[in-house]
Design a protein around this nucleic acid. Structure first.
Lengths: 127, 127
DNA sequence: CTTAACATTAACGTTTACGTAAACGTTATC
DNA sequence: GATAACGTTTACGTAAACGTTAATGTTAAG
């Protein structure tokens, strides 16, 4: 597919796709004499993965690093072990993020409860 | 305390504090003839809250909105109910974030398991 | 084979969250 | 009361992640 079609399916602009290419996040499957970029469906999958991670507030640099780990088929035992270590770092960081958000969540519910109690008291007083 | 002391305790620069003031995120407790800003300890608490929320990837605009809700003592029943509604929106969004991160976490552990199995197989084959 | 629709590169613009001078006033200390 | 240390405003600089022309080439449809 062309860059316009790909962009439409991925709900981004062509500019975004070219920008990602310039960062090494993806590449056209083919590029013949005319200079036009043509893409296969695997690039669409990649764009969806990028969008997914962007929603997790990863920077494009971080996404690039993660994608490289995901898409690299490690040749030898050494490579596999190294990637496992990287993934375990990601796992730890993700757990910390989750914990932070859960604490934030708790603060919100506390605030809600406090306000709800306050509203109820106002109600019983004026009833 | 002065802006320098506050900055040091909050582990930010004076520039950051002035920038936050320009956005309406905080204000000096006092500002007399000389033009110097003097702060009370409550501003330090505010800065810590801002830093905490920044780590949750909130923008300064979003943080401002949240802080306004947190620090606004609602006068009447109407105001309280409104704030409860806002907080419930935050709650929902936070839950979605947590869910996304948990899915990401699951993907990581899957990848790790796959690689670990692959490593073990390599090991038994060559043993 | 003309023309609309889409592609290409190059380059400047935009927003966020500050960093970093520059030019100058204030305060605390000796 | 000089001087170092810190404060003030103004304003230009920076990185990230694109948006937006501009000038030009390519492709597909009639």
């Amino acid at each position: 597919m062309t860059i316009g079609e790909l962009a439409q399916r991925a709900k981004v602009t062509p500019r975004t796709i070219r920008y990602y290419e310039s960062l090494g996040l993806l590449a056209p499957s083919e590029r013949e004499g005319s200079g036009f970029r043509y893409y296969g469906p695997e690039v669409l999958a990649r764009l969806k993965k990028i969008d997914y991670m962007k929603n997790l507030n990863f920077s494009l640099d971080e996404i690039k690093a993660v994608i490289e780990v995901y898409y690299t088929e490690p040749t030898n035992r050494q490579g596999k072990v190294k990637i496992i270590e990287i993934l375990q770092t990601h796992l730890k960081e993700t757990d910390e993020k989750i914990a932070s958000f859960q604490q934030f969540r708790a603060e919100i519910t506390t605030q809600i409860a406090k306000l709800q109690k306050s509203v109820e008291e106002t109600d019983t007083k004026t009833s």
